[in-house]
Simulated scan of single mutants.
Amino acid sequence: MLDRRLTAILYERLEQFPAVALLGPRQVGKTTLAQAVGDQRPSLYLDLESPPDRDKLSDPIDYLSSHAGKLVILDEIQRVPALFQSLRGLIDQGRRQGRTAGQFLLLGSASIDLLAQSSETLAGRIAYVELAPFDVLEVAAESSETLWVRGGLPESFLARSDRASMIWREQFIRTYLERDIPQFDARTPAETLRRLWTMLAHHQGGLLNTAQLARGLALDGRTVNRYLDLLVDLLLVRRLAPYHVNVGKRLVRSPKLYLRDAGLVHALLRLPTREALLGHPVVGASWEGFVIENLIGCAPDGTQASFYRTAVGAEIDLLLELPNGETWAVEIKRGLAPTPDRGFHQALEDLRPDQAWIVYSGEERYRKPGGITVIGLRELCSTLQACA
């Protein structure tokens, strides 16, 4: 088991809140991390996808009251949404008895539904923490390229070979399409969703064009948007919002779409190795998405992420508005001799950010004219983390 950077944050939230929701896609390591936390104190683990465990909660207040004083870990909590009302009563009862924190650890793989269900009943009683796939600060420096090619889902990254990793990712996609997604939306045909997923992989980092996607899938735009909402909800797709500010420019207003795990992009496009990836047109967009996910994951809580693009070509791949009030502009280049585009310089003149960076695939840090710093991904992630 690799150490997760989120572990310290999870302990901190459990010391402060009676309930903590640990969110993340399936197979990202939520259960492993939760059980490691549970091993450090008296705890009870229930898998709500298991019929015997669900049966134990036929009278949740009676059953869970008998385990008062333990950390109760409820896995796949969105499967039993009716539990939230019972948890509220148990949390309030625990407060009256002096237990103000660390009562429940809730694991979920559907963020929007879980947030909606829990926020209505547990407002002020719950904190949310998102566990993403492995990032560059959680693996050895020499494994960064492997992380990019295979993605950060633990079973894929830690597989004994590229072939074994690819087989695992193919089965992961199949299981999601045929078993997991129908649990959230039975109206979604698996084959249609696979085609949409593959189209998104081909257009990694492209602007959302609902009409184009609808034509390709022979569907109406409303249905396509519903499918996209589902993939975003399952923490598989990121909609990166455009930056809106009054700079007297005509700005692009459509979000960019990224599959959040690079390894899934490569599996959908049948690119099992680094060599196959480097020879494919998606290589630049794949690297861009990989960098964006790592930087957002390492940024301090409360950071707002977006991109900037004008109708005349001024563009910044990633804008990070940090909680301390600073704005960082990030250009992303694959290669060892990165040169900023004219559009990046123009965007810097438009926005005047506090820091301007070019992230590239090398490791040396150096300056370029215009106050731009060229930096490796790992070092910029460390720099962001130090801002927390």
Rank of each mutant, 00 (worst) to 15 (best):
residue 38 G to T: 04
residue 47 D to K: 12
residue 50 S to I: 07
residue 32 T to I: 10
residue 23 L to S: 09
residue 10 L to C: 02
residue 17 F to W: 14
residue 39 D to R: 14
residue 36 A to N: 05
residue 34 A to K: 02
residue 16 Q to K: 13
residue 52 P to I: 00
residue 16 Q to M: 14
residue 48 L to M: 05
residue 54 R to K: 15
residue 59 D to G: 09
residue 13 R to M: 14
residue 42 P to D: 14
residue 45 Y to Q: 09
residue 29 G to D: 03
residue 53 D to P: 01
residue 25 P to T: 07
residue 35 Q to P: 00
residue 20 V to D: 09
residue 57 L to S: 04
residue 8 A to P: 00
residue 6 L to Y: 09
residue 49 E to S: 03
residue 23 L to T: 05
residue 13 R to N: 08
residue 41 R to F: 12
residue 23 L to D: 08
residue 41 R to C: 09
residue 40 Q to F: 13
residue 28 V to F: 03
residue 12 E to D: 12
residue 12 E to G: 08
residue 11 Y to P: 00
residue 19 A to M: 03
residue 48 L to R: 00
residue 5 R to I: 03
residue 17 F to P: 00
residue 6 L to S: 08
residue 8 A to S: 13
residue 47 D to H: 15
residue 29 G to C: 08
residue 10 L to A: 03
residue 40 Q to M: 10
residue 36 A to W: 07
residue 55 D to R: 11
residue 11 Y to R: 15
residue 11 Y to M: 01
residue 37 V to K: 06
residue 17 F to H: 05
residue 52 P to V: 00
residue 34 A to M: 03
residue 20 V to F: 15
residue 14 L to K: 10
residue 56 K to H: 11
residue 21 A to S: 13
residue 12 E to W: 10
residue 29 G to L: 04
residue 25 P to S: 04
residue 44 L to F: 13
residue 27 Q to G: 06
residue 24 G to V: 09
residue 29 G to M: 04
residue 34 A to S: 02
residue 49 E to M: 02
residue 35 Q to F: 07
residue 33 L to V: 09
residue 26 R to G: 06
residue 24 G to T: 06
residue 23 L to Q: 02
residue 33 L to M: 07
residue 37 V to D: 03
residue 59 D to A: 15
residue 51 P to K: 10
residue 43 S to R: 12
residue 48 L to E: 03
residue 15 E to A: 15
residue 31 T to G: 02
residue 23 L to N: 10
residue 36 A to F: 07
residue 5 R to D: 07
residue 53 D to H: 08
residue 35 Q to V: 12
residue 42 P to C: 08
residue 32 T to P: 01
residue 20 V to Q: 11
residue 50 S to N: 15
residue 14 L to F: 03
residue 41 R to T: 13
residue 26 R to C: 12
residue 27 Q to N: 09
residue 48 L to T: 02
residue 37 V to G: 06
residue 31 T to D: 05
residue 59 D to L: 08
residue 22 L to F: 06
residue 43 S to I: 01
residue 8 A to E: 13
residue 29 G to H: 02
residue 53 D to E: 04
residue 18 P to Q: 09
residue 55 D to T: 08
residue 40 Q to V: 06
residue 20 V to M: 10
residue 20 V to H: 13
residue 57 L to H: 07
residue 53 D to W: 07
residue 16 Q to T: 14
residue 27 Q to S: 13
residue 5 R to G: 12
residue 4 R to P: 05
residue 51 P to T: 06
residue 40 Q to W: 11
residue 28 V to M: 06
residue 27 Q to M: 13
residue 16 Q to W: 08
residue 54 R to S: 06
residue 56 K to M: 11
residue 49 E to H: 03
residue 29 G to R: 01
residue 8 A to G: 06
residue 25 P to E: 01
residue 17 F to I: 09
residue 42 P to Q: 14
residue 20 V to K: 15
residue 39 D to S: 13
residue 25 P to Q: 08
residue 48 L to C: 05
residue 48 L to D: 02
residue 13 R to Y: 11
residue 45 Y to F: 15
residue 57 L to V: 04
residue 11 Y to E: 13
residue 59 D to Y: 14
residue 54 R to V: 00
residue 16 Q to G: 09
residue 43 S to K: 05
residue 13 R to F: 11
residue 19 A to K: 01
residue 55 D to V: 01
residue 50 S to V: 00
residue 29 G to P: 01
residue 57 L to R: 06
residue 40 Q to C: 07
residue 17 F to L: 11
residue 11 Y to L: 11
residue 58 S to D: 07
residue 9 I to P: 00
residue 35 Q to N: 05
residue 52 P to Y: 11
residue 47 D to E: 00
residue 7 T to V: 15
residue 56 K to D: 07
residue 27 Q to P: 04
